[in-house]
Design a protein around this nucleic acid. Structure first.
Length: 739
DNA sequence: CAGCCATATCTTTTT
DNA sequence: GATATGGCTG
């Protein structure tokens, strides 16, 4: 039974307004999940709606699972019937049932980014595209963007309007779709787009689902793209009881096609929509909320809103700048350790957030050294690891022999002595005969030019066929175990004996465990369903807030979560906001970064610490970065000790550094590795070039030395570069070479 | 055909 | 710094 007395007035309104379109603008920490779960409970308990007629859509499995369990807590029995799922799994469910009406096999496989890349590579090779000119990734990005906008290959061609590059993309796009269909596979974007297509084209299917879903709710609506928008519009087409929840200030997935106008224009698309604003924040202290409000206030083009809280001011925000990124990591690790020791918090109260996954490395090292339990979320997905992808490719081959990408991946893994030459011969044969790669392997003796290789291919085909036969009478796990034994995959790793090989074996064991777990959960376990589940998990799904560990993740990953103590690391211009956004002509990109900052700040309940480093290694180059402009947007009164010690002041410490910075104030500065720097310092600097000499620079290319001036401990060298013009730089950093 | 070494490119963010 | 690719050799 639900009780509305725990809800504020606006929240109650959100729960009780069940009919017609509703837009809930829910600020960070304003209890939107509570509204959604209570609303569902209200529909079932009070309005007698069948759970079967309710659909709730989220972005991650974790969010879906949480909503499900919270509905369960309130409603108890009967809530199982509610469809709570992610966009992608919802679409898969629909497609598995009806996609055969569009020429696909309902047993299609789902391609992840890796698979897409492999396929694209093959296509570029076949179409003889110079991948130096046009990168595979460029095509994939363009295709993904098109799919998010529901633009199919023929639309794309029509829009190309004679533009050479666009025409090229159109050709590749068409071929890509053709190959996907042939492989009986779909990529992530297809899942949404094909569902929209199915619902648009097939009246019977559309009416079925429209009739089924009397009530639809969508979480994180600000992150929907055009395709997802259409999907929802189609599904809600009959009853129009659509409730969307979102916050335009937390829209951070534009790069993935999210269209903020979906939420901003909701009222004009659904004219009689009721709009409810949730502005009371229940999560953060006043200081944290003030900081968030002040930062986000710098964005134009947002729906005006003001978050408020009844909470006390709380601690001020800590900001610290360090000489290097490792010192930063050292500080964060120590600070967490200290706080736990003093019983101020547990490890799982703490989260360390950063802009890019690469930043996690130093933190991890520090955490290991300090014996701090931590969990890294994101980065390389478990299912993206080599050994896991190999095993999954076997399973995919068993499940869907049409998936050429999977078959080619494992044909020679472990080594069977089948090289590229043989593989290409089979591939050509398959292409000419219009059959799948695997089917071509089966008739290997008829492939021209395959002499000895036939004998090597045979055992591979037999293995796959045996597994398929086994599947009729055995559980998928049995087949998996048989497979691992027969291929000798683990055996080979054991023989290797390295730590890395051991870690791989552990991962494979983990995969078996996951499959066992799946079989126990499923009513009727099938290999296909397992593969599907595996394809659609995000790393965040495995994060469990009950375990006592610090969590490390990107700011993007943290959306929707909250922690008593939050550390935002790498608060530097060039890192966050990223260099790409600073240099972009489009000011919207900076605004998106600012929203990301807003998301980060509002994750914190009571303690927020921001850190920055003066120097940081990025891709093997040392960068010097200024303090993030976002830090400067926070009023100083909210910061603890902003101008106190010299370790936290804004001026660079060393004379050399200050001058270096002046010379390179516009760009993040790549310096020579520290090794050389130290050598030079020890030896005193000897320049092997003089004024008028031709020199070359690692980044700027060749140029002529105009002036050399002794400055402090280093030489200030002025060079007129052929490509980029005159630059002033310090010899110590510039690493100029005489040519 | 496989294993080794040189090189090139990468990085924002993810279902 | 790390990983993917390409060329070479045994």
């Amino acid at each position: 039974m639900i009780s509305t007395q725990m809800l504020n007035k606006e929240q109650q309104e959100g729960v009780l307004t069940t009919e017609g379109p509703v837009l809930i603008l829910a600020g960070a920490g304003s209890g939107k999940t509570r509204v959604l779960t209570n609303r569902t409970a209200y529909l079932i308990d009070e309005k007698g709606v069948s759970p079967y007629n309710i659909l709730a859509i989220t972005f991650t499995n974790k969010a879906a699972a949480e909503m499900k369990s919270r509905i369960n807590e309130i409603v108890g029995f009967g809530s199982d019937g509610v469809w709570v799922s992610t966009f992608h799994s919802c679409c898969v469910r629909i497609l598995r049932r009806y996609v055969d009406r569009m020429g696909y096999d309902t047993a299609f496989t789902i391609y992840d980014t890796d698979d897409q890349k492999s396929l694209m590579k093959d296509i570029c090779k076949r179409l003889e595209i110079d991948t130096k000119m046009y990168k595979e990734k460029m095509f994939l990005n363009a295709i993904s963007a098109a799919k998010n906008e529901l633009i199919d290959p023929s639309d794309f061609l029509a829009r190309a309007e004679g533009d050479f590059k666009q025409l090229k993309i159109a050709t590749v796009y068409a071929e890509y779709q053709k190959q996907l269909l042939k492989n009986n596979a779909m990529d992530f974007d297809d899942l949404i787009m094909k569902t929209v297509e199915l619902l648009s084209v097939d009246n019977e299917v559309r009416e079925y689902y429209q009739e089924r879903f009397h009530y639809i709710m969508v979480d994180e609506y600000q992150d929907t793209n055009r395709a997802q928008f259409m999907l929802i519009k189609l599904l809600a087409g009959k009853y129009k009881n659509l409730c969307v929840v979102g916050d335009d200030d937390q829209s951070i997935y534009k790069f993935r096609g999210a269209d903020i106008s979906n939420i901003l224009d909701f009222e004009s698309i659904y004219p009689n929509a009721k709009v409810i604003k949730l502005e009371q924040n229940y999560r953060s202290t006043q200081n944290i909320l003030d900081a968030a409000n002040q930062v986000i206030a710098n964005n134009r083009g947002r729906k005006p809103k003001a978050l408020w809280t009844e909470k006390e001011a709380g601690d001020r925000i800590v900001f610290e700048q360090f000489e290097s990124a490792s010192e930063e990591a050292y500080f964060i690790a120590n600070d967490i350790k200290k706080s736990v020791k003093q019983a101020e918090c547990n490890y799982n109260d703490c989260a360390v957030l950063y802009r890019t996954n690469a930043q996690s490395r130093l933190l991890e090292e520090r955490f290991v050294a300090n014996n701090i339990p931590y969990k890294l979320v994101g980065g390389v997905n478990f299912y993206a690891r080599k050994e896991i992808k190999d095993i999954l490719a076997y399973l995919k081959t068993i499940d869907n022999g049409k998936d050429d990408i999977a078959v080619t991946r494992i044909l020679n893994v472990p080594r069977r002595g089948i090289g590229m030459t043989s593989q290409n011969k089979v591939m050509d044969y398959a292409y000419n005969k219009g059959i799948s790669f695997y089917d071509a392997l089966k008739e290997g003796d008829r492939v021209p030019g395959l002499s000895r290789a036939v004998g090597k291919i045979r055992p591979f085909v037999d293995l796959i066929e045996n597994c398929r036969d086994m599947l009729f009478h055995n559980s998928p796990v049995k087949v998996l175990e048989y497979l691992i034994k027969e291929t000798g995959y683990v055996e080979e790793l054991e023989a290797e004996g390295t730590d890395e090989a051991k870690a791989r074996i552990e991962n494979i064991d983990e995969l078996i465990t996951k499959m066992v777990d799946y079989e126990q959960r499923a009513d009727e376990p099938t290999l296909g369903e397992f593969l599907e589940e595996v394809a659609l998990v995000a790393d965040i799904d495995s994060y469990d807030e009950d375990g006592d560990y610090v969590v490390l993740m990107t700011l993007h990953g943290a959306k929707g979560l909250e922690f008593p103590r939050v550390y935002m690391s790498g608060m530097e211009d060039g890192i966050f906001p990223s260099y790409m956004c600073i240099t972009a002509d489009d000011p919207d990109e900076l605004e998106e970064e600012r929203r990301l900052c807003y998301v980060g700040i509002t994750r914190a309940k009571s303690h927020l610490t921001m850190t920055a480093a003066r120097t940081r290694m990025i891709r093997g180059e040392t960068q010097y970065n200024a303090v993030s402009r976002f830090v400067k947007e926070i009023p100083k009164e909210l910061l603890k000790g902003y101008v106190k010690k010299n370790s936290t002041d804004n001026m660079p410490r060393s004379d050399t550094f200050r001058k270096a910075k002046q010379a390179f104030k516009s760009k993040p500065f790549s310096a020579t590795p520290m090794q050389t720097y130290n050598n030079m310092q020890r030896q005193g600097i000897v320049l092997d070039y003089k004024e008028g000499d031709r020199v070359s620079h690692i980044k700027f290319g060749e140029g002529t030395v105009q002036k050399i001036v002794q400055g402090g401990r280093d030489f200030e060298v002025t060079v007129d570069f052929d490509q980029v013009g005159v630059k002033k730089m310090f010899a110590m950093f510039a690493k100029l070479k005489k040519v």
